[in-house]
């Protein structure tokens, strides 16, 4: 499988004397400005990489940090909170139902994987509430990169992650991929509407609608320009797009941090490129944390990955349950 190494173990321990890691991996070392290293080792995680910049965060006066107190917090659905076990009779009933009516499971899976699991994965990356401790990935976005803790910023981060999934979904068979994309967008806007009314305390429906139209046109812009960057196969265009959207066109941008985000995006796309349609469609993909790094696979490792996927989804001798049927390719 893909090798991902914790930023702390590679840097904190591998490079002794540069800093003292305290507690969690989030308190990574910080180089003093007089010992700034000009080299950029490849085993740096994007998080450590951004932290090694000597330039302190310069607040952007155009995007003030004006977060508001949430009225109440929306809860995640039970089936996304952790391990859920279903009673045997329900499972058996479900299998019989699927088999009897010949239900197309790839269509059903788009909702539970694309519209639920993958959506919550994207949502959680930049999710934060005022005066509450940040999650590991949120520390990267808000503390290390110094982005404002606002709803609009959360939206930018979420759409960036959704776009990465879009890139992979386009490479699935047309109908199935489109369905996954549709489900994730539907869920995003449904969630935004709920968050605006329940958490952000926007009581007027017409104002919510106006915000959502604005978010929608932003989404078209972000996805379009990120696609342009991907198709041009150039980091400079990707960096310019990220600067315009994620960094809000900040004139005092720290280029080291911009490079860290460019690297983060490239790293995720690489993992998405290596995962097969079947594994991705069944929800086996997880975003690599900003404090982890990915090493490119050797041809040998790629073969191992393919065999592992085949063993998991097509063991050969066992009978496949009706709910596990799929036309998605195991090899590609």
């Amino acid at each position: 499988m893909l090798r991902a190494t914790k930023g702390l173990t590679t840097i904190g321990l591998g490079r002794g004397g540069l800093g003292t890691p305290v507690g969690s991996s989030l308190t990574l070392l910080r180089f003093k400005s007089d010992t700034l290293s000009t080299a950029t080792p490849k085993d740096f995680s994007p998080h450590a990489f951004a932290r090694h910049s000597g330039l302190p965060n310069i607040p952007n006066p155009e995007t003030p940090n004006k977060d508001i107190d949430p009225k109440r917090k929306l809860e995640k659905p039970v089936y996304e909170r952790g391990r859920v076990t279903m009673p045997q009779w329900k499972k058996a009933f479900g299998e019989a139902f699927v088999s009897l009516f010949g239900i197309d499971m790839d269509k059903i899976r788009a909702g539970s994987i694309g519209g639920s699991k993958y959506f919550y994965m994207c949502k959680d990356q930049g999710l934060q509430f005022k005066d509450e401790p940040l999650s590991e990935s949120a520390v990267f976005w808000y503390e290390t990169l110094g982005l404002p803790r606002t709803f609009a910023q959360w939206y930018q981060i979420t759409v960036l992650h959704i776009w990465m999934l879009f890139v992979r979904m386009r490479a699935m068979p047309f109908k199935i991929g489109k369905n996954y994309q549709q489900k994730i967008v539907d869920k995003l806007f449904k969630d935004i509407e709920l968050r605006l009314s329940e958490e952000m305390n926007v009581l007027s429906g017409s104002i919510r609608d106006r915000y959502m139209k604005d978010f929608h046109s932003q989404m078209i812009g972000i996805v379009g320009s990120l696609d342009e960057a991907l198709a041009s196969e150039s980091d400079s265009i990707l960096a310019a797009t990220l600067w315009r959207n994620v960094f809000n066109g900040d004139r005092n941008i720290d280029v080291v941090k911009l490079e860290a985000v460019v690297r983060y995006v490239r790293m995720q796309l690489y993992v998405l490129d290596k995962i097969s349609d079947r594994a991705f469609g069944f929800g086996d993909f997880e975003f690599v944390s900003p404090s982890e790094t990915v090493d490119p696979l050797t041809p040998e490792e790629e073969k191992q990955l393919k065999t592992a996927t085949r063993n998991k989804y097509d063991p050969g001798n066992e009978k496949v349950l009706p709910s596990q049927r799929s036309v998605l390719s195991i090899d590609e």
């Binding site: 000009t38 330039l55 047309f174 198709a231 980091d235 460019v262 490239r266 490129d273």
Partner: peptide
């Protein structure tokens, strides 16, 4: 340091390091 990072971006260092193949660039669905 800023110059180094800018140079990495200009030279598409990470695009080359994490090379993706045709699977994503010429998606079979579209």
């Amino acid at each position: 340091q800023q110059y180094r990072s800018l140079k990495n971006i200009y030279e598409s260092k990470w695009e080359k390091y994490y090379k993706i193949d045709k699977k994503l660039l010429v998606p079979k669905g579209n």
